[in-house]
């Protein structure tokens, strides 16, 4: 089976400062991987690089997406191919209506897949269905993208877009940060609805609590730009109990 995402020895830096120092990771269809780690360990950098942000220098290693060189693709091309990033800090787009934004995004992806573009009515139907799935306040669809949304609404909106675009590889960058427990639960519920045998998830989080709701198949611990430990879901609980210091001790041991 070809992995959806295969990262080998990935090294990256910002202004000559190394951030990723050789990351290896494979995500197969249907798998949910969680990457945990202390602040500044390079988790979010990894997410940004996978999505195609240009602020980083790639110093070595490879990333393959369904067998193709991901790092060669433009940002929008990656998205159309099915790589989705749920942003840690979703951006506000003043004056750009949610529906107009979704129409452009969905139809760009559909066109790339050789599908007919969706008309306004079909799009509205789809949006209604997906909004219900992830319990998005329907009135948000009438507003400008993320403008005036609460923190929780913004995060839920990211998952809503994930549902609309149906990517093969979904990367969630600290989707749990800044959420209260109710919002966390409902975002997690949304993600769980979207798990399926063809889709891979990479969930980046600082805290274990999200993983109570989205149960991962694998947990990786990232420290100082490297994945230092990988195991099943029990690793998250261990981390929660012992803290990241335990990992440092573990490495140095």
């Amino acid at each position: 089976m070809t992995p959806i995402l295969e990262i080998r020895g990935l090294q990256a830096s910002v202004e000559d400062m190394p951030i990723l120092k050789g990351v290896d990771l494979s995500v197969n269809p249907g798998e949910v991987h969680a990457i945990m780690g202390p602040n500044g360990s390079g988790k979010s950098t990894l997410a940004s690089i996978l999505a195609g942000r240009e602020d980083y220098e790639i110093d070595g290693g490879t990333v393959h997406y369904r067998g193709d060189d991901l790092l060669e693709m433009d940002v929008d091309e990656r998205a159309r191919e099915g790589v989705f990033l749920a942003f840690q800090y979703p951006v506000e787009l003043p004056g750009v209506s949610m529906m107009n934004f979704l129409k452009q995004a969905v139809n760009s992806v559909r066109e790339h897949r050789g599908q007919e573009p969706l008309g306004a009515a079909a799009l509205l139907r789809l949006a209604k269905e997906k909004a219900a799935l992830i319990e998005l306040n329907p009135s948000l669809k009438q507003r400008s993208v993320n403008q005036g949304f609460s923190g929780g609404e913004k995060k839920r909106n990211e998952i809503f877009q994930l549902a609309m675009l149906e990517p093969a590889m979904a990367i969630l960058d600290e989707t749990d940060s800044g959420l209260d427990i109710d919002a966390l639960r409902s975002v997690a519920h949304g993600v769980n609805q979207l798990r399926n045998p063809d889709r891979g998830f990479l969930i980046i989080t600082h805290y274990q609590r999200l993983l109570n709701y989205i149960v991962p198949d694998f947990v990786h611990v990232m420290v100082d730009g490297q994945i230092v430990q990988s195991a099943g879901k029990e690793l998250a609980l261990e981390l929660e109990k012992r803290g990241y210091d335990w990992v440092y001790d573990h490495i140095s041991a």
């Binding site: 998205a79 942003f87 452009q104």
Partner: peptide
């Protein structure tokens, strides 16, 4: 950041600029 956000959703650079400018003028 706005451009990146749009493009990460599959919207081309040109369409993203159009979208953002027309949003700016929407009012």
């Amino acid at each position: 950041d706005q451009m990146f956000y749009c493009q990460q959703r599959g919207i081309s650079e040109q369409d993203a600029i159009k979208l953002l400018v027309s949003g700016f003028c929407q009012e």
